[in-house]
């Protein structure tokens, strides 16, 4: 019973979400609620992209070894979020993306967000954090060759991901509070969040530079040794 039900539901999610639900969400957002309810739309889009990604992951066959490694990396990343101020969350996500592929990178970022929020507090921001960190890991997977090449690409990507994370979270904060996008308020949010953005960028670069070699090396060795 449960099995059939599950697969049906999963198929609905897989096919239904991109083709029907997403436009439907936008339509609901525009017509049902205020015509300016960007907050609702953005939240729904963030949630659904995560759902979509998980559905894709669910469908694929993943080696057990890879799964275990990703679970370990998620737990390490969550542990890393407890370090005050300078957090290696994005750096670990990037390193995972570089050495285990974009999908693993997305999973580590997204899962670390959900799980760490059990300790730091869940909220409507959770899907955005999932998406932001997830994307940081995913994009690292796409550009892994360039990122592995030298320090400069790594530094650039570290800074970029700090700004990207801040950007996504600020946009959401303003949308949530203000319901429509508001330039001056967004600017204010950017300015108040500037110290955090700087800390994100600096800690990303710092941790990427010192962790890339040892952790990347360990990941490479394990993948080689156990043929993952």
């Amino acid at each position: 019973m449960v099995v059939i039900k599950n697969s049906v539901i999963r198929n609905i999610i897989r096919i239904g979400v991109p083709f029907l639900l997403m436009p439907a969400v936008v339509a609901v957002g525009v017509f049902v609620f205020d015509d300016k309810s960007y907050a609702f739309v953005s939240l729904a889009v963030a949630l659904l992209s995560c759902v979509l990604f998980v559905a894709g992951f669910e469908k694929k066959r993943t080696g057990t070894g890879r799964m275990a490694l990703v679970a370990v990396l998620v737990a390490l990343t969550v542990t890393g979020r407890f370090i005050p101020y300078f957090k290696p969350v994005a750096a670990l996500t990037v390193i995972t993306g570089m050495y285990l592929g974009g999908e693993a990178g997305f999973l580590v970022g997204a899962m670390a967000a959900v799980i760490s929020n059990f300790y730091f507090g869940q909220g409507p921001w959770t899907p955005f954090q999932m998406l932001a960190w997830g994307m940081i890991g995913f994009i690292a997977g796409l550009f892994c060759d360039i990122l592995k090449r030298g320090k400069l690409p790594l530094i650039i990507y570290g800074v970029f991901s700090g700004i990207f994370f801040s950007f996504v979270m600020d946009v959401w904060t303003v949308l949530w509070y203000n319901r429509t996008f508001d330039g001056s308020m967004y600017l204010a949010a950017i300015v108040t969040a500037l110290p955090y953005t700087v800390i994100y960028a600096v800690s990303n670069v710092f941790f990427l530079l010192i962790l890339k070699k040892p952790i990347g090396g360990k990941l490479e060795r394990i993948c080689l040794k156990y043929r993952l």
């Binding site: 039900k5 599950n6 539901i9 992951f57 669910e58 370990v72 998620v74 737990a75 899962m111 799980i115």
Partner: peptide, 16 residues
């Protein structure tokens, strides 16, 4: 129920 694999990984991470 929707995503056994994802939730198994969360369960593993929670243990770790």
């Amino acid at each position: 129920r929707f995503s056994p694999k994802f939730s198994l990984m969360i369960s593993m991470a929670l243990r770790y």
